[in-house]
Write a protein that binds this DNA or RNA. Structure first.
Lengths: 234, 234
DNA sequence: ACCCGTTGTGTGACTAGGTCACTGATTGGC
DNA sequence: GCCAATCAGTGACCTAGTCACACAACGGGT
């Protein structure tokens, strides 16, 4: 059993099992060799099934997660049952709020939910602390991740406070309908944008009337992307 | 000369000039002696006049600020000219978004404005990095500050998305009228809450009609705090 | 194949909040 | 004492959110 196997894996089976997942993170590729080693030996690749609540009010995790595959939806919950999606963490990103939960003992009104099955590298709290203290590259990675999330939050605030619903909905549809068809109920879109179901129903009816979309039960099909885009960019 | 003197300072001249400002920060009091020294010798106490823009779009500072005196208002600006106040940094707190700006090269849609004359300890970027890497206490301080701000942002989002204007306005009035009189124009309150001036005017008219407040040009006087509070807590 | 509970959507009436286009009042210089 | 700037009040109108429904589609059972 030679040590090199870990460094240069051949053929590539399930990527997540390899130690080279580190390079899939923008900002970690130039990590110091010693640090890279700590990271790969002292973190653990875990799998989480879809719809698991990863963190939430009263449930702070004790690992920092680096997402290797899948997406995590982070959303704000209100007492009256309404929600807004704050942002999504996708493969190659880290879930910094987890870190904040871990390190800062404050409770959050937000929760993170696995939107798909997930593969992630879990970094225990102590290791995280070690890495932050010993690697400038890792520090930059962490702070940049924070910065990105905070920027996302700013966008959410700006959207909710100042932008019209029709514009926001059009954007959302374009953004989340990669194949031209979006699978989501009106209720889900409402939760996404932090509004009420009826509002979505009415807006979609209007979009349909204009020939921009076609609707099915639980689906929205884009017919005229330019029409939507023109609205979204106004 | 007994050691206790340091714990219970007498008379107190201009506080900011002393090196013991560190103890005014919750979370820095148990800093390792060596670190404490680095912090006091390599940071610089600065003064900034009221209404200075400390950071903003296209203006990222190269120091991390620990506020010794005064308050900084951090607000989001929209193209159409409307604003929302995100949070305030008060004496004894740090302005972490500054850190994020410093370290992460993303531009923010938010700006920080000195709301009063300000005294702050400025920590140069390089020193900040050094401190984060060498002191666990300082790391905790930084991450806790992040966590607090993120929590604040969550509150703002929840407020804007899900709470009624009258309730939010009542809260704001109570919160910012320490002496029973609040100096602010309707336009300022509107910017505070991210709404339009007319909305504030109408709500205040209603509060006045109910006998909760009296209005003057640029002032709101609380007459019946319980009335306001009952609304604010509903 | 039919029944039935569950889930998703449509609608009208109403309230709250935001926009627009004004008016008039107050204030601080000059 | 006049004038420009600032601050506040108002009505008409539009968008968004709430409430109370009706109804349609779907997915198991039996």
């Amino acid at each position: 059993m030679h040590e090199d196997a870990a460094e240069e894996p051949p053929a590539m089976p399930a990527i997540a099992e390899q130690h080279d997942w580190i390079d899939r993170f923008e900002g970690l590729s130039r990590l110091e060799p010693r640090i890279r080693d700590v990271l790969s030996t002292r973190s653990q690749v875990i799998r989480v099934p879809a719809n698991t609540v990863i963190f939430g009010p009263g449930k702070s995790p004790d690992n920092m997660l680096l997402l290797l595959d899948g997406t995590v939806r982070v959303q704000q919950l209100a007492e009256n049952g309404r929600e807004v999606v704050l942002y999504r963490v996708t493969a190659g990103e880290s879930c910094v709020l987890t870190t904040a939960c871990m390190l800062a003992y404050e409770d959050y009104a937000a929760e993170g939910v696995a939107e798909t099955d997930i593969v992630a590298a879990a970094i225990p709290r102590a290791v995280f602390d070690d890495l932050v203290s010993s690697s400038k590259e890792f520090r930059n990675f962490v702070f940049r991740a924070y910065s990105r999330r905070i920027t996302d939050l700013f966008h959410v605030i700006e959207d909710i406070a100042f932008r019209r619903m029709d514009i926001r909905l059009a954007q959302k549809i374009i953004e989340r309908a990669d194949t031209g068809v979006l699978r989501a109920t009106h209720a889900q879109l409402a939760a996404e944008l932090g509004t009420a179901r009826e509002v979505i129903s009415r807006q979609l009816a209007e979009f349909q009337r204009r020939g921009w979309i076609a609707q099915g039960r639980g689906t929205v099909e884009i017919l005229d992307c330019d029409g939507l885009r023109k609205l979204a960019e106004s």
